Each structure stands twice: as C-alpha cells, then as structure tokens.
Computed example of a mutant assay.
Amino acid sequence: MGVTQIANRLGIAKSAIHRHLQGLTERGYLTQNQSTTRYSLGPKAYLIGRLAPGIEDVATAADGPMRDARDKMGLTTVLTAPSMSGMVVLKTVHGTTSIAIGARPGSELPMHASAQGHVALAFGPSLHLERTLRQPLAPLTAHTITEPEKLKAMVETVRRNGHASAPEQALLGINALAAPVFNANDEFVAAAAIVSSIQFVPAEPDAGMIAAVVEMARQISRNLGHGYAGQRPAQ
C-alpha cells in the first residue's frame, strides 16, 4: 500500500502517516518497494506473524529445504531477510555436529560483514547498497571489508557467482555461505545460508558445498512460486 492510500483509509494526514511508516521501516517491520514506493510487511513483522496459525511465509516455505540441507551437510542452516539496518534472522535449523553454531531469530547481521548481507547487496534493491555505502563500514574483525570500493567489487563478484561467503568478517573463526531466495515476482526476499566454524565452512567452499546451498535457496524460491531453473542472471 502507498502513503496516500493508507492516509485516506485511516483519515490521518499524509505527513503523519509518512513518519510512522518510515519509523516502522527503519525498525524492520515494513519494507518499501523502491520502484513503486509502496509498503509491505518486513522481516520483523513476519516473525510476529508466525505466532499466528495458518500464515504461510518465507520461513514456512524454507522449512523443508533448510532441514534437507542440514541433514545433507550436518551444518546449521539459517534464513535471513533484509531490513533497513541489516539482515534479520528469521529461522535457524541447528546442525547435527557435537558443537553447532547458529543465529538467534530476531538478531541482525551487518550488511557489509556477512555473507547474507553481501547477497542482499548483490540481488536486492539498489537502496541497500546505497545506504550501506553512505555509512561507515565498521571493522568488526581484521577481515571485515571497510573500504567502499572493495565492498562494491565484492558485490559484483557475488552477483556473478550467485552466492557469497564472508570468512571471519563478522566474528573470528566463523564463516557462512549464502545464496539468494526470490519470490514469484522475481524479487529478492531472503538469503539461505549455512553457518559454522571456518573448519567446516572454509574461506573457499568446495563445489559440492556451494551446490547444496544454492539448491537450498532454489527450493525455497520454488516453494514461494519462483520459477527460475538455474542461477539468476546478473542485473
């Protein structure tokens, strides 16, 4: 819905509605389509919505593929969705190893220092990259990308490859491998990833691991009605 439509329905001034919508968007409860300027539910609203029975969302669509990938590799699988400030964790399926590394639902991962964030910057609306580049790229570890030009180059690489890893960029000893999830309208809506220590998800993941993560993302996309049969072409 747009600002005018919401204002007319509620009988409230457009300026007031706009302030409220911006606040909800900044907090991850709404997202704004860059092309149409219309608003829809954001990742944190989905987390609240999952408490209500019968709601089909990206987390529900991801359940089977995430469990299949976890069972195949034994590693924790994580689903995240973009917000104004980072990638919000929607769902985690813990690995089967004796020590499983995961991410708490509702927590946020930095756009510039996570594999999931790099996927969002590569396949999501351009506003994510523009907003990230306008802010200081905080050094979370010695491996974090802190130079705008290097981040832009990384995004181009992710766009070409169709997947991303970010070894030790957010936390020492930890790596993730992520791929994009699209809905029926060919819009980027989430990142599907595996997360573990650098021992199990190396800085340069092998072809089998990459294929498993890309297939997990592809299956989630299909469950959402997306029909692509292979790697999404670069934009």
Rank of each mutant, 00 (worst) to 15 (best):
I174P: 06
G64Y: 13
Q235V: 12
L30Y: 07
E156N: 09
H18T: 15
A115N: 02
F188D: 02
T92P: 08
A115S: 12
L151T: 09
M216F: 10
L224C: 10
D63G: 05
I6S: 06
L90G: 05
V213Y: 10
I12P: 01
L30T: 06
L177R: 07
A212W: 04
R104N: 08
F182Y: 13
P82C: 11
L79N: 07
T77V: 11
P82M: 10
L10V: 01
P167S: 01
Y46F: 04
G42Y: 04
P167A: 09
R9T: 02
G64V: 15
G162V: 02
G49K: 01
N175W: 12
E215S: 14
L121R: 07
T80E: 11
V158N: 08
P43L: 02
V93N: 10
V58S: 08
T36S: 15
G54K: 07
E56P: 04
A207M: 08
L41N: 06
E130Q: 15
A59D: 12
R67A: 11
G2N: 14
V3R: 11
L24R: 00
G162M: 04
G2Y: 05
N33T: 02
H128A: 03
Y39R: 07
V213P: 09
R70W: 09
D57K: 02
M66H: 11
D71Y: 05
E204F: 04
T92W: 08
R50E: 03
L75Q: 09
